[in-house]
Design a protein around this nucleic acid. Structure first.
Lengths: 219, 219, 219, 219
DNA sequence: AATGAATGAGTATTCATTCAT
DNA sequence: CATGAATGAATACTCATTCAT
């Protein structure tokens, strides 16, 4: 097996296991065993387990950023003067995520786990890394979301964005589990594409909902 | 320190650490060290680390179930014939969650982490335990949600529920982190109560949004 | 085997192996295996391999400092006004080293290896630790040596002290080897006491030798 | 880079690292990395790490033996009938060591580390190799030392030789460290030549000191 | 002649758990 | 009732060496 083969099969195995179990719960033994490579191969190719996680992350961070930016520019130039609607913005987001998913069905789940992980209190380093990586790409997108959302304070919008983020990360991190449950309960299992599409009107409505000024006083 | 004292201080320390770091990332050494008790005390009092997690869970599962049922009954009886609105249902849910939070600010985060954990592929046991525990309590509540939601297929509703669940678990698991970011960025940090309240119109709108039948065909 | 037993047998085994092989070359597996205790016992009792080395060091650092100080004071008080001779000073030093050797024949070798190690370029930490530990005890002794040595510049004395230190550390670190060679070559093997005693006139003469001002110019 | 270039740069890098850190503590990765050659190059060119150490040793063993023999013969022939003095013998030794040091400032330190290593209990192989290599060259020199030393038993002389060896190996192995300390403490740092020269009267006096027959009985 | 890839045996350390008292 | 001591299995990682090309 040549270099690319070993390196690639490690990443492939890691994506599956990271998606299934999370990062900390997955051991390098499990990964090398599943990839059928030597135990030391991860350290040889990626320096450390952390290096492997970064390599897995890089694999979709780059195309994702590129894709989101290009899609956004394309849409803005094609729309004559008028504003891009909220549904269109969310569709762009979902299409971007599908690009990540195109090559590997687990990559998207790993990416979402990485996002979740970054919100843990002791993961400031990862958080800052992702912010530094995404800031420029996401900021314009978020501003457009804000324009189309219901009028609200900055902090209100901050929380709504994270309600939305929670829906996306939870659904996609645990897609396999949810897919399995759906098949068992309803004898049908939707593809990721469908689920992403289904999210659009829900998230759109959530962002456009009028903020309630009252504060637990009706009951 | 007597039995109750030891046991309680272990749970207290565990809640904080589980909320901050997650279950797998928290070691029994950290817990016993923080609780200032003997290393063997966790196994002595709770049988195992898993037993401790269950004990921590039980601490809020019971009052939570009781509260949700009683609130629901109270509301249904007080409303003359007419239907309970979606916002009212969600407010009941949020009030129920606040009950958990009343005693310990970390308990809610731990509960949410437990819910997240239960959706991992290799956590069927925990998932089944929670279903068995919650089924009877939640089923009536979910049916009421369904009545007030936009008309849709069963599987569509299944996914919408999980979009909603994602928003709640993500926001509350990572509340401390989000709270810290909000304070840094906007010079204000909202309390849990406020955030739960803010979620209501968003989730409500999400459930009531009309499902889009088209399927990525507009582009 | 009780605590003291395990802890002590680890230290005992470690002293032998450190003396024979050096610190880096000795593995925790070798130590625990020789001590017939669990592999994790070193980490349990001493925190780490480094912690074990420090424990081994502490075992003779304390009595050594105490002994040297008390012997020095005793000698100075007993000598009426007159100066303590160089041979007497060196004898005090050797007697002090024998105190370390009393309990364990390897302890002295380990101590000497530790001194040698402390002069490695990347062992500044250890060096500073030993200086901090010995400074107060050794400074008075060294000043007395200086008084009895031939008159010379400070830097000249600095190097002479290290010529002397080299003789002591080399001989005692490798005492077992030298002892074995001596037995093979001369059918007799001297005890440590004898060797320490033999060193006295040699080191004394070395310190009292007149410094040669010429500088490789006679040839 | 051609064979000779690769080989030479490996030896060069190895000398520096061996002198700084010792043999066991220096990894082939460090060496090849510093030499900027392929990781496998050491095994390719020298068979093994051990082979590299031997190659580094050979580099100064040969000139050192040649030099000592020729210097000794030259001196003996030039001295008419009379005996070569102890100081002259030691000066020959020091000049010989300087030859090793001429090409590479680290070579001498490496040589001394090798000598130290050879006295470790589990390094009989190296010890025998060095004896076989040096025996013929050193034996005449040692006999001359013996003639000029104070009259003493064979075993006494054996130990004195090793007191002397300790001074030399300790000082030169750790020359960089001692040099640094001297500069810091006394604002001056002597060159190797000066230190070797300074050692002569000290070692000379040590060898000529009258052996003390009493045995720790005066106190 | 040389090297990037790979490897098996090793390293110290950490883990939750158990045991004897 | 509680705990200090101990443990077996696991952790990530490093080592010098070898292999295929």
């Amino acid at each position: 097996m040549n270099h690319k083969g070993t390196s690639a099969s490690i990443i492939k195995a890691a994506e599956i296991l990271f998606a299934e179990q999370g990062f900390a719960e997955t051991t390098v033994r499990q990964i090398t065993s599943k990839a059928d490579v030597n135990l030391a191969a991860i350290n040889y190719h990626f320096g450390s387990k952390k290096g492997l996680i970064q390599a897995v992350a890089e694999k979709f961070l780059t195309p994702l950023c590129t894709e989101l930016t290009s899609m956004l520019e394309q849409r803005q130039s094609s729309t004559d003067a008028g504003q891009v609607t909220l549904d269109e913005l969310l569709e762009i987001l979902m299409r971007t995520l599908l690009v990540v998913n195109r090559d590997n069905v687990n990559a998207l789940a790993v990416f979402m786990r990485l996002l979740e992980l970054s919100y843990m209190q002791n993961q400031e380093e990862l958080r800052e890394f992702l912010v530094a990586r995404y800031q420029d790409t996401l900021q314009p997108f978020i501003l457009l979301l804000r324009e189309d959302a219901a009028p609200m304070e900055d902090d209100e919008f901050f929380w709504r964005l994270h309600f939305l983020l929670g829906s996306i990360t939870f659904t996609l991190s645990n897609f396999q589990t949810l897919h399995t449950i759906e098949k068992r309960e309803y004898q049908r299992g939707a593809e990721v594409e469908k689920i992403l599409h289904r999210m659009i009107p829900v998230l759109s409505a959530g962002l456009q909902a009028r903020a309630d000024k009252t504060y637990f006083c009706r009951v």
